Simulated assay, not measured.
Amino acid sequence: MNYTFTVFTPTFNRAVSIHRVYESLQSQAFHDFEWLIVDDGSEDDTADLVGNWIKEADFPIEYMKQSHAGKHIAWNHALRKAKGRFFIIADSDDGFVPNALERLLEVWKSIPREASGSYRGVTCRCVTNEGVVVGSMQIPTPWLEASEADVKYVHKSQYEMWGMTSTEVPRQYLNPNIAGMRFYPAAVKWVKNI
């Protein structure tokens, strides 16, 4: 692995919003990451925007374009290309606070070495542009050690999450490439990883 993080953005005709991802990556305090963008056949000026960013960014950006096959196939391309130890998904309208990557890594490093083998990543709550935490329920403690299924069904927590996972975990579970199928629920991939 060449980087700590691979940040992956699947996109389709999102030239109007993908700048949010770019700007927030530019503002990161931690720069040991690559940004992989897989364009699912956009017909807008996404390619031109990204081309300009590749020339000016102080971090590596790789842009791949596929025929309109679906987000799940874009995931497969990104997972095969990823050079980061950890994989982060940044949808084409997402943005991160300036210390997001640094903070995720700090939390990962705080896991005792002897226990870290039983973890696949670190997840955090999302906030709006105004800094309001998204979701209706509070986490019962400042730190919650649980599978995604336990968070949802045992703790009955309803909120939007974001985070990182070891790249090798989702790489083991590539999505099916079935002719004509342009949608494969991401939840299926995460259930396989629990």
Rank of each mutant, 00 (worst) to 15 (best):
K55F: 06
H72E: 09
E43M: 12
N76Q: 09
K55L: 11
K83I: 10
F96V: 09
V50K: 08
P60S: 09
A90S: 10
G70E: 02
N52T: 14
D40R: 07
A74S: 10
A57D: 05
W75D: 15
I73G: 01
I73N: 08
M64Y: 12
P60T: 09
G41M: 05
H72N: 01
K71C: 15
A74V: 05
N76V: 05
V50P: 04
K71F: 15
Q66K: 09
D91I: 01
H68Y: 04
K81S: 09
D40A: 04
N76G: 04
E34N: 02
P60R: 06
D58M: 13
G70Y: 03
I73Q: 14
V38I: 12
W53R: 03
I54E: 12
F33K: 10
I54T: 04
H31D: 14
K55C: 04
K81R: 05
T46C: 12
D48C: 10
R80M: 14
G95M: 15
G84K: 09
K81M: 11
E43Y: 13
I89D: 13
N76D: 10
N76C: 08
F96Q: 00
A82P: 11
F86A: 07
D40P: 02
R85F: 06
D48H: 13
G41A: 02
I37V: 15
P60L: 11
A78W: 00
F87G: 06
V50N: 03
H31S: 14
A74I: 01
D40T: 00
W35G: 07
H68Q: 06
T46S: 07
P60H: 11
D91C: 04
D91E: 14
G84L: 13
D44P: 04
D45P: 10
F86N: 10
S67D: 13
G51D: 12
E62L: 15
E56M: 09
L49C: 00
K81Y: 15
A82I: 11
G41C: 05
F87V: 12
I89L: 15
W75S: 13
F59D: 06
Q66P: 00
D32S: 10
H72Q: 01
A82M: 02
F33M: 00
A90D: 02
G51F: 03
V50T: 08
I88C: 05
S67F: 04
K55P: 02
I37P: 06
I73H: 11
F96D: 06
F33I: 03
L49A: 01
A78T: 08
F87H: 07
L49R: 09
G70Q: 05
G41T: 06
R80H: 13
L79R: 08
E34M: 00
E34D: 03
F87P: 06
N52D: 10
M64L: 13
K55I: 08
I37N: 10
F30Y: 15
L36G: 01
